[in-house]
Write a protein that binds this DNA or RNA. Structure first.
Length: 293
DNA sequence: ATCGCCTCCTGCGCGC
DNA sequence: TGCGCGCAGGAGGCGA
Protein backbone atom coordinates (compact mmCIF):
# COMPACT_ATOMS: atom_id res chain seq x y z
CA UNK A 1 0.00 0.00 0.00
CA UNK A 2 -0.01 3.15 -0.09
CA UNK A 3 1.70 4.49 2.96
CA UNK A 4 1.03 8.05 4.03
CA UNK A 5 2.75 9.78 1.07
CA UNK A 6 0.79 7.71 -1.43
CA UNK A 7 -2.48 8.44 0.34
CA UNK A 8 -1.66 12.14 0.49
CA UNK A 9 -0.73 12.11 -3.20
CA UNK A 10 -4.10 10.54 -3.91
CA UNK A 11 -5.90 13.07 -1.72
CA UNK A 12 -4.29 16.01 -3.49
CA UNK A 13 -5.06 14.53 -6.87
CA UNK A 14 -8.70 13.87 -6.12
CA UNK A 15 -9.48 17.03 -4.18
CA UNK A 16 -9.83 19.54 -7.04
CA UNK A 17 -12.21 17.24 -8.87
CA UNK A 18 -14.66 16.72 -6.06
CA UNK A 19 -14.72 19.57 -3.58
CA UNK A 20 -17.82 21.74 -3.96
CA UNK A 21 -19.36 19.24 -6.32
CA UNK A 22 -22.29 16.91 -5.97
CA UNK A 23 -21.94 13.23 -5.25
CA UNK A 24 -24.47 12.11 -7.83
CA UNK A 25 -24.32 8.44 -7.03
CA UNK A 26 -22.06 5.61 -5.98
CA UNK A 27 -21.62 2.25 -7.63
CA UNK A 28 -20.42 -0.90 -5.98
CA UNK A 29 -19.17 -3.68 -8.22
CA UNK A 30 -17.54 -5.90 -5.63
CA UNK A 31 -18.60 -5.23 -2.08
CA UNK A 32 -16.36 -7.72 -0.34
CA UNK A 33 -13.32 -5.71 0.54
CA UNK A 34 -11.89 -6.03 4.03
CA UNK A 35 -15.37 -5.21 5.23
CA UNK A 36 -18.47 -4.93 3.05
CA UNK A 37 -18.66 -1.56 1.33
CA UNK A 38 -20.89 0.97 3.07
CA UNK A 39 -22.29 3.60 0.75
CA UNK A 40 -25.92 4.25 1.67
CA UNK A 41 -28.25 5.60 -1.00
CA UNK A 42 -28.98 8.55 1.26
CA UNK A 43 -25.62 9.96 0.19
CA UNK A 44 -26.74 10.46 -3.37
CA UNK A 45 -27.04 14.16 -4.05
CA UNK A 46 -24.79 15.18 -1.16
CA UNK A 47 -22.39 18.06 -1.54
CA UNK A 48 -18.73 17.08 -1.09
CA UNK A 49 -17.27 19.68 1.26
CA UNK A 50 -13.72 18.41 1.38
CA UNK A 51 -11.31 15.52 1.07
CA UNK A 52 -9.25 14.96 4.18
CA UNK A 53 -6.68 12.49 5.34
CA UNK A 54 -6.22 10.91 8.74
CA UNK A 55 -3.27 8.57 8.75
CA UNK A 56 -3.81 6.37 5.73
CA UNK A 57 -7.56 6.97 5.66
CA UNK A 58 -9.09 9.26 3.08
CA UNK A 59 -12.18 11.07 4.28
CA UNK A 60 -14.79 12.48 1.92
CA UNK A 61 -16.83 15.05 3.85
CA UNK A 62 -20.48 15.10 2.80
CA UNK A 63 -23.22 17.68 3.38
CA UNK A 64 -26.58 15.99 3.10
CA UNK A 65 -28.76 19.06 3.46
CA UNK A 66 -30.65 20.68 6.30
CA UNK A 67 -32.86 17.80 7.28
CA UNK A 68 -30.12 15.22 7.54
CA UNK A 69 -26.98 14.47 9.41
CA UNK A 70 -23.80 15.15 7.58
CA UNK A 71 -21.45 12.27 7.10
CA UNK A 72 -18.11 11.02 5.93
CA UNK A 73 -17.11 8.35 3.50
CA UNK A 74 -13.99 6.66 4.84
CA UNK A 75 -11.72 5.06 2.25
CA UNK A 76 -8.61 3.00 2.92
CA UNK A 77 -6.45 1.76 0.06
CA UNK A 78 -5.16 -1.31 1.85
CA UNK A 79 -1.98 -2.70 0.38
CA UNK A 80 -2.75 -2.46 -3.28
CA UNK A 81 -5.50 0.10 -3.76
CA UNK A 82 -5.61 3.22 -5.85
CA UNK A 83 -8.23 5.87 -6.58
CA UNK A 84 -8.34 7.44 -10.00
CA UNK A 85 -10.19 10.36 -11.51
CA UNK A 86 -11.71 9.18 -14.77
CA UNK A 87 -14.16 10.20 -17.48
CA UNK A 88 -17.63 8.77 -16.94
CA UNK A 89 -17.42 6.44 -19.91
CA UNK A 90 -14.12 4.84 -18.92
CA UNK A 91 -14.34 1.05 -19.24
CA UNK A 92 -13.85 -0.87 -16.05
CA UNK A 93 -10.74 -2.89 -15.44
CA UNK A 94 -10.24 -6.00 -13.37
CA UNK A 95 -10.37 -5.17 -9.65
CA UNK A 96 -12.36 -1.97 -10.09
CA UNK A 97 -14.68 -2.42 -7.11
CA UNK A 98 -16.33 0.90 -6.38
CA UNK A 99 -16.78 4.42 -7.71
CA UNK A 100 -18.16 7.81 -6.89
CA UNK A 101 -19.88 9.71 -9.66
CA UNK A 102 -19.37 13.42 -9.12
CA UNK A 103 -20.89 16.30 -11.01
CA UNK A 104 -18.88 18.46 -13.37
CA UNK A 105 -17.92 22.06 -12.57
CA UNK A 106 -20.77 24.12 -11.20
CA UNK A 107 -21.28 26.17 -14.36
CA UNK A 108 -21.33 23.15 -16.59
CA UNK A 109 -24.52 21.40 -17.54
CA UNK A 110 -22.80 18.76 -19.60
CA UNK A 111 -22.94 15.27 -18.19
CA UNK A 112 -19.69 14.66 -19.99
CA UNK A 113 -17.95 16.80 -17.44
CA UNK A 114 -19.01 14.53 -14.63
CA UNK A 115 -16.18 12.41 -13.27
CA UNK A 116 -15.67 9.05 -11.71
CA UNK A 117 -13.53 8.52 -8.65
CA UNK A 118 -12.85 4.84 -9.07
CA UNK A 119 -11.33 2.42 -6.59
CA UNK A 120 -9.15 -0.38 -7.91
CA UNK A 121 -7.77 -2.81 -5.33
CA UNK A 122 -6.42 -6.20 -6.47
CA UNK A 123 -5.89 -7.60 -3.00
CA UNK A 124 -9.07 -6.16 -1.53
CA UNK A 125 -7.47 -5.24 1.77
CA UNK A 126 -8.91 -1.76 1.46
CA UNK A 127 -12.28 -0.54 2.69
CA UNK A 128 -15.07 1.94 2.03
CA UNK A 129 -17.05 2.74 5.16
CA UNK A 130 -19.49 5.40 6.22
CA UNK A 131 -19.67 7.43 9.40
CA UNK A 132 -22.69 9.66 9.91
CA UNK A 133 -22.53 12.92 11.80
CA UNK A 134 -20.16 15.84 11.74
CA UNK A 135 -17.19 14.15 13.36
CA UNK A 136 -15.73 11.17 11.51
CA UNK A 137 -13.17 10.68 14.27
CA UNK A 138 -15.75 8.87 16.37
CA UNK A 139 -15.53 5.96 13.94
CA UNK A 140 -13.92 2.98 15.72
CA UNK A 141 -11.16 2.78 13.11
CA UNK A 142 -10.22 6.42 13.62
CA UNK A 143 -10.94 6.96 17.29
CA UNK A 144 -7.73 5.47 18.66
CA UNK A 145 -5.21 6.57 16.08
CA UNK A 146 -1.94 8.14 17.16
CA UNK A 147 -0.60 11.51 16.09
CA UNK A 148 0.07 12.68 12.54
CA UNK A 149 3.79 12.46 11.76
CA UNK A 150 3.71 15.78 9.89
CA UNK A 151 1.74 17.52 12.64
CA UNK A 152 2.85 19.51 15.66
CA UNK A 153 2.21 16.84 18.28
CA UNK A 154 4.78 14.49 16.78
CA UNK A 155 8.27 14.89 18.18
CA UNK A 156 11.28 13.03 19.48
CA UNK A 157 10.12 13.67 23.01
CA UNK A 158 6.72 12.17 22.20
CA UNK A 159 8.32 8.98 20.86
CA UNK A 160 10.73 8.85 23.77
CA UNK A 161 8.00 9.14 26.40
CA UNK A 162 5.68 6.57 24.84
CA UNK A 163 8.46 4.07 24.28
CA UNK A 164 9.80 3.81 27.81
CA UNK A 165 9.83 0.22 29.03
CA UNK A 166 8.54 -1.04 25.74
CA UNK A 167 10.31 -4.10 24.44
CA UNK A 168 9.08 -4.40 20.89
CA UNK A 169 11.50 -3.56 18.07
CA UNK A 170 11.73 0.17 17.40
CA UNK A 171 10.68 -0.50 13.82
CA UNK A 172 7.42 -2.04 15.00
CA UNK A 173 6.99 0.77 17.46
CA UNK A 174 7.07 3.50 14.81
CA UNK A 175 4.80 1.42 12.58
CA UNK A 176 2.17 1.17 15.34
CA UNK A 177 -0.70 3.40 14.27
CA UNK A 178 -1.74 3.94 17.86
CA UNK A 179 1.58 5.74 18.33
CA UNK A 180 2.00 7.54 15.03
CA UNK A 181 0.00 7.03 11.87
CA UNK A 182 1.14 6.56 8.32
CA UNK A 183 4.60 5.07 8.76
CA UNK A 184 4.61 1.78 6.87
CA UNK A 185 7.30 -0.73 6.07
CA UNK A 186 9.12 1.33 3.46
CA UNK A 187 9.38 4.60 5.32
CA UNK A 188 10.08 2.94 8.66
CA UNK A 189 13.10 1.23 7.12
CA UNK A 190 14.28 4.41 5.44
CA UNK A 191 13.94 6.71 8.43
CA UNK A 192 15.72 4.22 10.71
CA UNK A 193 18.56 4.03 8.23
CA UNK A 194 18.87 7.78 8.05
CA UNK A 195 18.87 8.02 11.83
CA UNK A 196 21.47 5.25 12.19
CA UNK A 197 19.20 3.17 14.42
CA UNK A 198 19.10 -0.58 14.11
CA UNK A 199 15.47 -1.60 13.48
CA UNK A 200 15.64 -4.57 15.85
CA UNK A 201 16.57 -2.53 18.92
CA UNK A 202 13.87 -2.53 21.62
CA UNK A 203 11.94 0.73 21.46
CA UNK A 204 12.59 1.34 25.14
CA UNK A 205 16.36 1.33 24.62
CA UNK A 206 16.47 4.10 22.05
CA UNK A 207 17.80 7.32 23.53
CA UNK A 208 16.00 10.63 23.67
CA UNK A 209 18.47 12.18 21.28
CA UNK A 210 18.11 9.32 18.81
CA UNK A 211 14.33 9.71 18.89
CA UNK A 212 14.78 13.41 18.29
CA UNK A 213 16.70 12.64 15.11
CA UNK A 214 14.38 9.80 14.14
CA UNK A 215 11.30 12.01 14.39
CA UNK A 216 12.94 14.54 12.06
CA UNK A 217 13.93 11.78 9.64
CA UNK A 218 10.40 10.43 9.58
CA UNK A 219 9.06 13.87 8.77
CA UNK A 220 11.73 14.40 6.14
CA UNK A 221 11.34 11.10 4.39
CA UNK A 222 7.53 11.40 4.27
CA UNK A 223 7.67 14.98 3.02
CA UNK A 224 10.19 14.08 0.32
CA UNK A 225 8.11 11.14 -0.78
CA UNK A 226 5.00 13.32 -1.04
CA UNK A 227 7.00 15.75 -3.17
CA UNK A 228 7.85 12.92 -5.55
CA UNK A 229 4.33 11.56 -5.76
CA UNK A 230 4.94 8.63 -3.44
CA UNK A 231 6.70 5.33 -3.95
CA UNK A 232 5.53 2.94 -6.63
CA UNK A 233 6.74 -0.62 -6.21
CA UNK A 234 4.11 -2.29 -8.30
CA UNK A 235 0.50 -1.25 -7.99
CA UNK A 236 0.41 2.29 -6.80
CA UNK A 237 -0.63 5.06 -9.13
CA UNK A 238 -1.80 8.55 -8.26
CA UNK A 239 -5.26 9.79 -9.14
CA UNK A 240 -3.91 10.75 -12.57
CA UNK A 241 -2.72 7.20 -13.17
CA UNK A 242 0.96 8.05 -12.88
CA UNK A 243 3.38 6.19 -10.60
CA UNK A 244 5.36 7.82 -7.80
CA UNK A 245 9.07 8.43 -8.19
CA UNK A 246 10.37 8.05 -4.66
CA UNK A 247 11.61 4.52 -5.26
CA UNK A 248 14.86 5.87 -6.64
CA UNK A 249 15.46 7.67 -3.35
CA UNK A 250 15.31 4.57 -1.18
CA UNK A 251 18.53 3.70 0.66
CA UNK A 252 17.62 0.32 2.12
CA UNK A 253 14.08 -0.83 1.32
CA UNK A 254 14.21 -3.58 -1.27
CA UNK A 255 18.00 -3.50 -1.41
CA UNK A 256 18.96 -6.53 0.64
CA UNK A 257 22.41 -7.74 -0.39
CA UNK A 258 23.32 -4.53 -2.19
CA UNK A 259 26.16 -2.34 -0.95
CA UNK A 260 25.19 0.47 1.40
CA UNK A 261 25.28 3.76 -0.49
CA UNK A 262 27.07 5.39 2.43
CA UNK A 263 29.67 2.81 3.52
CA UNK A 264 29.42 -0.02 0.95
CA UNK A 265 28.68 -2.66 3.60
CA UNK A 266 26.37 -5.37 2.29
CA UNK A 267 22.82 -4.52 3.41
CA UNK A 268 21.28 -7.15 5.65
CA UNK A 269 17.75 -8.48 5.53
CA UNK A 270 15.87 -9.58 8.66
CA UNK A 271 12.35 -10.41 9.63
CA UNK A 272 10.83 -8.23 12.30
CA UNK A 273 7.32 -9.07 13.36
CA UNK A 274 6.47 -10.88 10.16
CA UNK A 275 7.62 -8.00 8.00
CA UNK A 276 10.81 -7.97 6.03
CA UNK A 277 13.34 -5.37 6.92
CA UNK A 278 16.64 -4.23 5.51
CA UNK A 279 19.35 -2.33 7.30
CA UNK A 280 23.03 -1.52 7.12
CA UNK A 281 24.95 -3.40 9.84
CA UNK A 282 27.61 -0.69 9.86
CA UNK A 283 25.57 2.52 9.66
CA UNK A 284 22.78 1.24 11.89
CA UNK A 285 24.78 -0.01 14.80
CA UNK A 286 23.29 1.97 17.60
CA UNK A 287 20.23 2.92 19.52
CA UNK A 288 21.82 6.26 20.29
CA UNK A 289 22.50 9.26 18.15
CA UNK A 290 24.82 8.53 15.26
CA UNK A 291 23.25 9.20 11.89
CA UNK A 292 25.12 7.99 8.79
CA UNK A 293 23.85 10.78 6.57
C1' DA B 1 -1.09 -3.75 28.97
C1' DT B 2 1.94 -5.66 25.69
C1' DC B 3 3.55 -8.51 22.17
C1' DG B 4 3.81 -11.64 18.36
C1' DC B 5 1.34 -14.18 15.22
C1' DC B 6 -2.35 -15.05 11.91
C1' DT B 7 -5.48 -13.50 8.67
C1' DC B 8 -7.89 -11.43 4.68
C1' DC B 9 -6.76 -11.54 -1.13
C1' DT B 10 -4.51 -11.54 -5.73
C1' DG B 11 -0.45 -11.32 -8.50
C1' DC B 12 4.19 -11.70 -9.56
C1' DG B 13 8.90 -13.35 -9.70
C1' DC B 14 11.69 -16.97 -8.77
C1' DG B 15 13.61 -21.70 -9.00
C1' DC B 16 13.00 -26.18 -10.69
C1' DT C 1 6.78 -23.12 -21.02
C1' DG C 2 4.66 -24.34 -16.88
C1' DC C 3 4.07 -25.10 -12.18
C1' DG C 4 4.38 -24.42 -7.19
C1' DC C 5 6.14 -21.65 -3.69
C1' DG C 6 7.08 -17.55 -1.09
C1' DC C 7 6.51 -13.01 -0.72
C1' DA C 8 4.27 -8.25 -1.10
C1' DG C 9 3.15 -1.42 0.51
C1' DG C 10 -1.79 -2.76 6.05
C1' DA C 11 -3.64 -3.53 10.20
C1' DG C 12 -7.46 -5.64 12.98
C1' DG C 13 -8.01 -9.25 16.12
C1' DC C 14 -6.72 -12.91 18.99
C1' DG C 15 -4.31 -15.77 22.31
C1' DA C 16 -0.46 -16.04 25.42
Amino acid sequence: MPELPEVETTRRGVEPWVVGRTLKTTRTYQSSLRWPIEAPKALHGANINGVYRRGKYLLFGLDLGDDHDNGTLIVHLGMSGSLRVLAVDTPRLKHDHFELVVSGPRKSKSAQEDKLIRLNDPRRFGCVLYQSGNDPKVHPLLAHLGVEPLGNEFSGEYLFQLSRRRKLAVKNFIMDSKIVVGVGNIYAAESLFQAGIRPTVPAGKVTRQAYEDLSQRIRGVLADAIRQGGTTLRDFVGSDGKPGYFKQSLYVYGREGEPCQVCATRLKGVNIGNRSSVYCPTCQRHSSFQPPI
